[in-house]
Amino acid sequence: MADQARARAESIGVSIPTEATVDLSKRPHIGETIIQAILFICGVLSIFTTVGIVWVLFQQAWLFFGDPEVSVLEFFTTFRWVPEIGLFGVWPLVTATFMTSLIGMLVAIPFGLAAAIYLSEYASDRVRSVVKPLLEILAGVPTVVYGYFALGFITPLLRNIFGINTVNIYNMASAGIAMGILILPLIASLSEDALSAVPQSLRNASFGLGATRLETAIRVVLPAAASGLVAAFIIGISRAVGETMIVALAAGAGPNLTANPFDSAETITGHIARISGGDISYGSIQYTSIFALGLLLFVITLGLNILSRRLVARFREVYE
């Protein structure tokens, strides 16, 4: 057999080494090692990004808090943010961020969760294959377009409903609603993943006991997917906190400590965008102040993301 094969191979010009000449030991491949090194460097690059972000934020924030005009205590315990006269109390920006995110989540969580329940528990494959790409389009629309939509459509609508005198041209409610619509598909898609991960056997057991589809969804599937759902909501909140363009366009300019959603107020991100859009000189206190705000934003969103990841990991342990 082997001789025949060798003869045939040689007849078409291929030489097969005889057993004596075959060296089976691993040969060093310099090319392979170089390639592996290049690939490794590309992987490590992401570490440099993080190091860069942390270094830049901390270094500039250090300069900011090192300035005799400000102190960490003033930053966290006073309630006015007017950089022009040296007042740096972060709370007006934080409350506005909180308010717009809250309104956004009030829209995104109920609608997103309901959409996810429909898609995972009721919809046929055909409906799902039509609806999911459409929701993805909604999520893919650039945020600046949502800002335009909030200012040009939602605000006039709110003013028609609640009266021109109650609703400011720039207001947190309008920005929050637009944000909710933006985040709805994200919540819907992450929640649907969590619901679909619940084993079918749990549903079947519930149906077997005579429960309706709704009872199964609410009392069996939802509790089983709870940590996954909460993780999805937290990702949504983190996204809302970091969202910039909608609030920069629709929520208004100028920090304002208010609990009225129809008032204008500036969020952390909106303030950073406005200040850096103008001409600020490098090294001025206004310049370093946006990095201190950036650090706060980074810590908040990172905390939320890590929390969410923990929840998802716990959820996976139970069902996979």
């Binding site: 992401s46 993080t50 972000i53 830049v56 950073i272 950036g294 980074f298 990841r309």
Partner: peptide, 15 residues
């Protein structure tokens, strides 16, 4: 990398 995916875009702007 997983954490970087959740960092708000404006922070990248600061970087």
């Amino acid at each position: 990398i997983n954490n970087l995916a959740g960092v708000p875009s404006i922070i990248y702007g600061m970087l």
